[in-house]
Design a protein around this nucleic acid. Structure first.
Lengths: 336, 336
DNA sequence: TTGTAAGCGTTATCAC
DNA sequence: GTGATAACGCTTACAA
């Protein structure tokens, strides 16, 4: 198990090192007999090329970076991210890329990560998740011509490459479904008010109300942080109105579950008195009672599009359109 | 933004390229004045060294590989993995390493990944998750002297470096707690029977029964796959016994939640008629009703130990002991 | 203390 | 077709 290199192979096969390289690259110009000889030795010794040398020489690492703009603790319990990472890994593999994952705790470290990954040429391109809608670093990356794709939204929309859930459409779908099934007082339980996703889904919610000729009532819209307590108090606020809502569209499954629980504690039956729809179609939808109806966002599609786009950029293809949307669909269960 | 290299910096600072390298490495031998000059130029141009060249020259990529032995779809919704990945990323950062994540769908591709990552020298070392207890590839890695750490268990225990949850201790703790709080008919709801974790926790469960002088009844032990239906039917089986159990130790929170739900559907009150304890202390424990008591496994500790150990191996330190255990603790909520 | 130069293991451009 | 040979950008003896 001495350190194998092409030179070794060459010596044993009685050819030049350059020929070994050519054989391994599948160069059609090499004589069949030599190819055989080389491949035989390669097989026998189990030679594998050194990725570091290839990276330096070819100026390509075949590594994609995934930067998640979130505190590790916040990221920790979120099934969305394991899904996203798993799918991107799988997709990247199809193009012979590997995935380097980083998390950006603070804004300061985020900048450091961009630098560290891209400027050092450690990765060939970046997928960024959950950046703010406006971000100096993104402008910078863009100006410097680094290949990167954003998962989420960015304005103006054609400035950078983005892949996003169809958040507006998803919220429309949820609200529309509730209205069609006879609900009339549909409330919206959002996440933190500043988040793009909160705003986008609010927009879809409003659009559906309008399409059904139902007036928009700001009192039926509340915001919560991503924890059970905050969700519970926001739900309580909704339920205390008179008349109380007969349906809730929640920003994600966690919030939806908290809302269901609060409603039940206050004597409302779900879905009889109040219907609840969540987002993400996470596994736990199946586990709660009643089982949670949820809007599934297609994480595999998101991952596929993002990877495809990034690899395209790296290899010099300008994608169009620069903004791509992964569709959503309603998974009907018992809660609505 | 021409391609910056040390040679450029050297020219502008009026020194040799080697000196630039020395300054950047913090070599104390360089004269303060030159250091200033070099650093000034570096700062001004925003030079960052090329990781690819460094990797080739130093024979170190400063990249750790994380190989998760699980189908991407199975991995997809599992909050444990986002936690693990997030924590390892954070830990690796402390040693100036980045993390390359791969998933191994099939055994065939798993072998490919080992090869691809290690033999190509793409990463300096590997963290392997959820391998089978006996694995040919692991032997091979071990024989070839590649630095790697296993998260999970391996036999014989001192053959390779492993980091694991204290599964036996955790199950003991859960069972002991239930017995102390007056439960007498404690059942065990495991995962798939073949899994090491299922077996280890069963062992802890038995030990606790024994310590309390409670007889072990094989009928009180059932196994389920990781999905709601399977969990429900296993729970139904438990509840149909007479007398039915008055407590369940479930292998993970998902199973525990499914069990609670099944029990409630069959008219049992939780925790009054039957107490339930889960594992992992995942965020959803807070969201279900009643809130789920769960054994928290310290994922950050797991990640820290694994990373520490691996970096040590890479840098030539033999760790001892070769097997390290992350402690568990009981997080008491409403279900038990 | 600083500069020169020899690699690290590839790929790719030349001649032959 | 195949074999020398020059990069790729850096680290590190060794020389000065």
């Amino acid at each position: 198990m001495a350190d194998l290199k092409q030179a070794e192979i060459a010596k044993l096969a009685g050819v030049s090192q350059a020929t070994v390289s050519r054989v391994l690259k599948g160069d059609p110009q090499v004589n069949a007999e030599m190819r055989e000889r080389v491949l035989a030795v390669v097989q026998q010794l189990g030679y594998v090329p050194d990725a570091r040398a290839q990276s330096l020489r070819s100026q390509r690492t075949r590594l994609l970076g995934l930067v998640i703009h979130r505190d590790p603790d916040a990221l920790a319990g979120d099934p969305f991210f394991s899904a996203l990472i798993a799918m991107i890994v799988a997709q990247a593999g199809r193009y012979d890329y590997h995935l380097c994952v980083d998390t950006a705790r603070t804004a300061r470290s985020q900048r450091a990560i961009y630098e560290e990954l891209l400027r050092t040429r450690r990765v060939d391109g970046l997928i960024l998740v959950e950046s703010e809608t406006q971000d100096r670093r993104i402008e910078r990356l863009s100006n410097e011509g680094f290949p990167f794709v954003l998962i989420g939204r960015y304005e103006p929309e054609d400035a950078v490459c983005t892949v996003d859930n169809d958040n507006i459409g998803a919220a429309y779908m949820a609200t529309d479904y509730l209205l069609r099934t006879g609900r009339r007082r549909v409330a919206y339980l959002g996440g933190p008010a500043g988040l793009t996703v909160t705003r986008d889904r609010l927009q879809g919610y409003k659009a559906a109300l309008e399409a059904h000729g139902v007036g928009y009532d700001p009192h039926r819209v509340v915001f919560a942080d991503f924890n059970a307590r905050s969700a519970a108090s926001a739900t309580t606020e909704l339920l205390s109105q008179s008349p109380p809502p007969d349906a809730i569209v929640a920003l994600d499954d966690m919030l939806a579950i908290a809302a269901m629980r609060t409603a039940k504690q206050q004597g409302c039956r779900v879905p009889d008195d109040i219907a609840v729809v969540g987002f993400n179609d996470s596994p736990l939808c199946e586990y709660v009672e009643p089982r949670l109806t949820s809007i599934a966002v297609e994480i595999p599609t998101l991952a596929r599009k993002a990877t495809e786009m990034l690899v395209g950029l790296i290899e010099g293809r300008e994608p169009s359109p620069k903004r791509q949307i992964a569709p959503a669909r309603l998974v009907k269960r018992e809660s609505a």
